[in-house]
Each structure stands twice: as structure tokens, then as C-alpha cells.
């Protein structure tokens, strides 16, 4: 196995492990605010690592790497926004 393949494997399996922790955590968490931590984390670490893995695999200048990077940036910027909006909705429902 070359260094190139090892780095791709490490990046991909780290991303999968991060997503698995979030999937298990969201079920184990007690209330909605604790669950929001896991859904926010799911849209940050995993996609970024997979985008880097695709860039390593295909080369930084390839179309696949560019598209994967855009997906990761969309999730990276959109995740916190959705998390804040959901937290506001949850608090508003508690105050009703």
C-alpha cells in the first residue's frame, strides 16, 4: 500500500468514524439541545475530511475535488445556520 492510499484510507475512515459518533450520540442524547450538538458536528468534520480525501485521490485541480470542496463548504456554512434556527425554534416551543 502506497502512502497515497494510506492517507486516503485514514481520511475516509476518520470521516466515517466521526459520522458514526454523531449518529450514536443523537440517539443517546437526552434532550433536543444536546442532540443539536451532534447534528451540527455531522455537517462539519465528516464532509471536510471526505472532500480532502477526494482531493488527495483525484488531484487538487480535478473537477471531482472542486465539487466535493463546494459540497463541504455548503455543509460547513449551512450546518451552523440550520442548527441555530432549530435551537431558536426549540426554545420558542418551550416558552409557549
Amino acid at each position: 500500500m502506497s502512502a497515497h492510499e494510506i492517507s486516503v484510507h485514514v481520511l475516509v475512515w476518520t470521516a466515517v468514524a466521526a459520522e458514526l459518533v454523531c449518529c450514536i450520540g443523537i440517539v443517546a442524547a437526552r434532550d433536543v439541545f444536546a442532540r443539536l450538538h451532534y447534528s451540527a458536528a455531522a455537517s462539519t468534520l465528516g464532509p471536510t475530511l471526505v472532500a480532502v480525501a477526494i482531493a488527495v485521490e483525484e488531484g487538487v485541480r480535478s473537477i471531482a475535488a472542486a465539487a466535493a470542496l463546494v459540497v463541504a463548504v455548503l455543509l460547513l456554512l449551512g450546518g451552523p445556520a440550520v442548527t441555530i434556527a432549530t435551537a431558536r425554534a426549540a426554545r420558542a416551543r418551550l416558552e409557549r
Binding site: 459520522e19 449518529c23 443539536l36 447534528s39 455531522a42 465528516g46 455543509l75 450546518g79 432549530t86
Partner: peptide, 10 residues
């Protein structure tokens, strides 16, 4: 809704 957001990211 929180679970839906996580599922869509996954």
C-alpha cells in the same frame, strides 16, 4: 427535525 438534519448531512 434534528434527526432529519443529521440524516441529510449523512
Amino acid at each position: 427535525l434534528v434527526a432529519l438534519e443529521l440524516a441529510s448531512a449523512v
